[in-house]
Design a protein around this nucleic acid. Structure first.
Lengths: 221, 221
DNA sequence: TAGAAAGACATCGTATACAATAATTAGGAA
DNA sequence: TTCCTAATTATTGTATACGATGTCTTTCTA
């Protein structure tokens, strides 16, 4: 793997694992000395992360971790609700016992990580579950998009998630695996849709003031 | 608009309009003198185009316009077939006479461009039709993805399209507008699905040899 | 003391320089 | 001639330099 790629992954991981929280500033020279490369390489990575909506670059002001607004949060989840259930039928065409085992192992790790309060692992495993499921549908273009949406979801949870909503997100993925093992396409699709809608509804999206606070209303008489 | 953005758009346009055909090499210093900026700015644009799959960058070998393989071509079209029809219901919620007029004007321009053999305009207008339709569904995340897929489709047509398949792609978009005006969600969805499947089936995807030619089989005795 | 202006500092945008790698050409031996 | 090797050229990868912009601090005045 190339050097850039390594830096990219480390930064992306730090962001989706909430070690770099939404809004965190990302000064180029600080990062360049941390990674031991020049600003050139860092800028390349930051620009990529910006295109993927993980960071925001403001001209002459630098980069910071994206803090998705409510519209973006809503749209990312809606996109997943539209796409992921639709992948189930294609996915079931390739589904077999070996896959089932692999995913059940993943779910076990998820539960373990959650039990041990390993937030970072828990987040990564949850995203991987959805991504690898999407991959099995056989369309790499869509699977990559789903992966990006999963990572963005993690950022959204950092900004709008309720306490423990990562664990909540996990729901119980093994239920889905049961449905897949039984070959129930409809039920599996429905489960996925419900699962994602549940995550969306667990977000606190209603009017975080954040900016443009009405001080008159707040303090005025 | 920033300077990079202008260069980006010019290059993207040149690619989707088939002025830079699939496989065309894109040497940095040639581009930098053409645009009157240093290689730094060009590299930034090339890297963005690479992330969006319009160009391919090979380490130490430079960039060239992407020549999508058959799998990619198939997957891009399948993605559109999965997503675009699904946007129709949300779109219809906002549909009104003003929108209808705007899109009908666009279709008229399409036909005009096609008649005059203005390939570039024709391609751009077709993509815009699909993108702006997607935008009306109200989900910017999905609309941007659809836009990218539309542009990639143009690249795919350059590689696998039959003679005149751009005009073919246009089909007759006004038919869709009629269905939308009448509020027939189901029929509009079906039309869109059929439309995209038609485009896909018009591609010549069966086994372009291109590489790994079996010379033994071809010339051996 | 509060506010504004000016300077110092930090940070980014862009160009350039040099090293590393690949492609090409030229030269020599079989 | 044909093939292989070596030198040259072209092109990219990465670091650095410098000017531009924004931010912060200090100082002065009302």
């Amino acid at each position: 793997m190339s050097n850039d790629e390594i830096i990219y992954r480390q930064m992306l991981n730090a962001i989706v694992e909430h070690q770099l929280p939404p809004g965190a500033r990302l000064p180029e020279d600080r990062l360049s000395e941390a990674f031991g490369v020049s600003r050139t390489g860092i800028r390349k990575v930051l620009q990529r992360l910006a295109l993927e909506h993980f960071v925001v670059i403001e001209k002459n002001k630098g980069a910071h971790v994206n803090r998705p607004n409510e519209a973006e949060a809503s749209e990312v989840l809606d996109s997943r609700i539209l796409i992921e259930p639709q992948l189930i039928p294609a996915l079931l065409n390739h589904w077999n016992a070996a896959h089932s085992d692999r995913f059940r192992t993943m779910v076990a790790e998820e539960k373990q990580a959650e039990k041990n309060n390993q937030l970072a692992d828990s987040i990564q495993l949850t995203a991987r579950f959805h991504y690898e499921l999407a991959t099995l549908a056989g369309n790499k273009v869509l699977a990559d998009f789903v992966q990006q949406l999963c990572y963005r979801s993690s950022l959204i949870l950092a900004a709008y998630g309720t306490r423990g909503s990562v664990g909540c997100e996990c729901g119980d993925h093994s239920e889905l695996l049961d449905l897949l093992d039984q070959g129930h396409a409809d039920k599996a699709q429905h489960w996925m849709s419900h699962h994602l809608k549940h995550i969306k509804s667990s977000l606190i999206l209603d009017s975080k003031p954040e900016e443009n606070i009405d001080f008159q209303k707040l303090f005025g008489r």
